[in-house]
Structures are given as C-alpha cells and as structure tokens.
C-alpha cells in the first residue's frame, strides 16, 4: 500500500514551513532534504549515536531519526541553525570554541543541541545532570571531557559576566 503524501506545517527555528511529506520520511529527512537545513546530521539512524538531536518545543533533546515527520504536524522545533541569533553565536557555541570541544565536528550539532537541552532544563546542572543529558550522544574522536567543561562553564552562575561577554560575541 503506497502511503499518501500529506500536507504538513512545521516551525523550524521560528520559521513556518509548509510542505508535502511522505509517511516514509523521518523528521530528519524533512529537516535536511525539504527544509534544507543540513546542520543536523544523519549518523546511525537507530537511536544510538545522537548526532541527529534537535530540540522540541519544550527545549528537550529528541532524536529526529527515530520519528516519522508526519508526527510533527503543527509542531515547533529548534535545530543547530537556530542557536545562532542575529549573527551572534549562542553562549554554548562560544564556549565550545574556547574549550576546543570540537574535533572532527560531525557529532557537534548533536552534542550542542543535547547540551542546550541540559542548559534549558537546569539552572545549575550538576555533574550527574550533565552526564545524564549527554549520555545519548557519542563523540567518536573521544572529546567528552572538553565538552563537559564547556557546558559547566556556561551553566555555572558564577560565570554570569562571562556568559554575558560570550553573548556579546567578544
């Protein structure tokens, strides 16, 4: 039985998209091939690696590869492209640069969106909260320590001024 394409609307990074989507497409397929935002990567497609991580409308990390696109009719999501606002990088992105929390970079969109979810969920995330939030995304260059340092730096309220400085893009 050939599944009918359905018209769906999806809000990505605040922009509304209306498109014909096949039941065969996952949310990841639609983000990359139809919306045209290729920052979100396709890795294992089985829920193990986490590089396809995006944020849902509650700012939580979810896997775009394990969900049919049509499930997201009318919903709002944030992808890696949505972190940068008006040409300014997000505090997390700046921290990743400062700490060198990037090696080959393939997992970085997924790592950043997972980290963003941790920052969204906790005012003061502890070691366990960060580990829990980041366990679902794998860096095969083994760069997890610097990633955690960058997250802790952004999350640490004592670094309020530093966060502001980062937000200013300095």
């Amino acid at each position: 039985m050939a599944g009918k394409r359905q018209l769906m609307t999806l809000t990505v990074n605040g922009d509304d998209y209306e498109m014909l989507v096949s039941p065969r497409q996952t949310l990841l397929d639609v983000i990359r091939d139809q919306v045209g935002l290729t920052g979100t990567k396709e890795g294992c497609t089985t829920g193990s690696c986490g590089v396809c991580t995006i944020n849902n409308d509650r700012g939580e990390a979810v896997l775009s590869c394990l969900t049919p696109a049509l499930e997201w009719q009318g919903k709002s999501i944030t992808t890696i492209e949505g972190l940068e606002v008006n040409g300014k990088l997000d505090a997390l992105q700046n921290a990743f640069l400062d700490y060198g929390a990037v090696q080959c970079g393939f997992c970085t969109p997924g790592v950043l969106m997972s980290a963003k979810a941790v920052i969204n969920a906790f005012d003061h995330p502890g070691e366990e909260d960060i580990n829990d939030g980041m366990a679902g995304v794998l860096c095969r260059c083994t760069g997890h320590i610097k990633v955690k340092e960058a997250i802790r730096n952004v999350a640490d309220s004592s670094n309020e001024t530093q966060r502001e400085r980062r937000d200013d893009g300095q």
């Binding site: 599944g3 009918k4 096949s22 039941p23 065969r24 497409q25 996952t26 049919p68 049509l70 499930e71």
Partner: peptide, 26 residues
Amino acid sequence: MLLPEHEFSKPASLRDSLTELAEAGG
C-alpha cells in the same frame, strides 16, 4: 534510508483510533 511504504494516520481521539484499529484491512 526511507522507512518502508505505509499509510500514516493520526486520529484525534481514542475512540477514533479504536475504530480505525478495528476496521483496518491490513
């Protein structure tokens, strides 16, 4: 890789879902 061919359906209520489930051919 695309998912296998299928129809996608998302009824609005439990009642509608149960009806669709009971009446489904495949």
